[in-house]
Amino acid sequence: MILVKNIVKRYQTRNGYHTVLDGISFSLKKGEKIGILGRNGAGKSTLIRLLGGIEDPDSGTIRRDMKVSWPLASKGGFQGSLTGADNLRFICRIYGVGFEDKMRFVEEFSELGKYMHEPLKSYSSGMRSRLAFAMSMVIEFDCYLIDEAMSAGDARFRDRCRYELLEKRSDRSIVMVSHDHRQMRQFCNVCYVLQNGALYRFDNPDAAFSYYKNAQ
């Protein structure tokens, strides 16, 4: 269970403070899968980072009673000058899991071939996404935070993500940010629209999408 209570997050800009999240509350039970919709700059990634514990809210509390992943995004979380294999080794050490058997899974899932031993900076965004996703599957979490991590991949990659997340790990929770209507419908049972710092709940993704379209 994740319990979010009244969180506020502000950032300093040249013209004073900009409030990104303004008193947001919600809860996420084990196994629940929620999607977050919102325009660019609405604060979706900020919310994900707060859930992941990378930043702290300015006020309010976040209680995590389950193991929450790091935010899976197309960038962040990895060292560009290190190879894919080195990054995997680093992640395994950080989270205290063995390395050898994980390497096989990541190689197979990411289909990086010899690029596994090249620095990350030489990767395309699709390759990065595949590696990032594979690495987060190596560590077992109760809740996965996904910040548009699948948008850079092709259809085959998305199918594999769906299999890993929805079939093999159907009991886990997901918090997902995406602009893709179909993906949202596939992954989530509850949808939130983030607008002007507030969160609006919809019990099915279609209703959320139609609200979101009209609001724009």
């Binding site: 990378i54 962040g76 060292q79 992640i91």
Partner: peptide
């Protein structure tokens, strides 16, 4: 190290 501070336990 902004990138690796993505991991909460670091």
């Amino acid at each position: 190290n902004n990138a690796i501070l993505f991991h909460r336990n670091i």
